[in-house]
Amino acid sequence: MKNFTLILILLAAMNLAQAQTEILQIDVDTDSTESQFGANRRHFIHTFMSLGLHTQIPVSGNYNFPRSTYSSFGVLYKLKLSDYFSTGVTLSMESSNIRLSKDRVLPFPDTVKHNKETLQQFALSGSYYLRINMEKRGNSIGKYFELGIGGLLQTGANYQYEEPLQGKEIMEVKIRHYRLIRSSNWYLYSALGVNNFAIIARYRMQSFFIDNSGFPEAPPIMLGFSWGFF
């Protein structure tokens, strides 16, 4: 008898599904729960993209680093401490292209003067930050100033350049697993942001190349902007 009743209920339920189309159903209690997650709630997480330039500082009079670029894509977690203070971590994949320009033949990275010499570094980066918000606001990020410390682990490094051949032909040379770039590093960074957008600055705390390479230092400062996706 119990089984028969169950079958009847199931049939009735199927009948309901077939009979009428429900075009709106709201469960007020579950749909109206106050969230702990949000731009200015206890927890917030979002992805971000950053683009920047390694500053062209002539650390050695014989070298220049024009148009050296930085890019990253990652995820940011924010923990709200109060209306004005929050903290959090980031995890990102990043890439740096250090362009090299020699004014004459020099021993770095080799003893030949090439065209479009570039040192590429790919890395997994993580950071911890403290954020200060400027004003009281609603459930939005608002204006903030941020200070952080981070480290990176190299996942790939290349040295590449172009070599002119006879006529208009060009030979592109790429040396993978370039070993003279330091495989881990750490940095300080700061950001000044408004909602999705932030101006970022980063200072590398260790030399770009390994200690005994004898190479000059690559630009330690990166300036750029970051865009949060939320």
Binding site: A19, Q20, T21, E22, I23, L24, Q25, I26, V28, D29
Partner: peptide, 18 residues
């Protein structure tokens, strides 16, 4: 007196709403 649940059903068949 608070609303717990609400919705809209398109009554297109000769069947009850359950």
């Amino acid at each position: 007196g608070k609303i717990r649940k609400y919705g809209v059903v398109l009554a297109e068949m000769d069947e009850p709403v359950y």
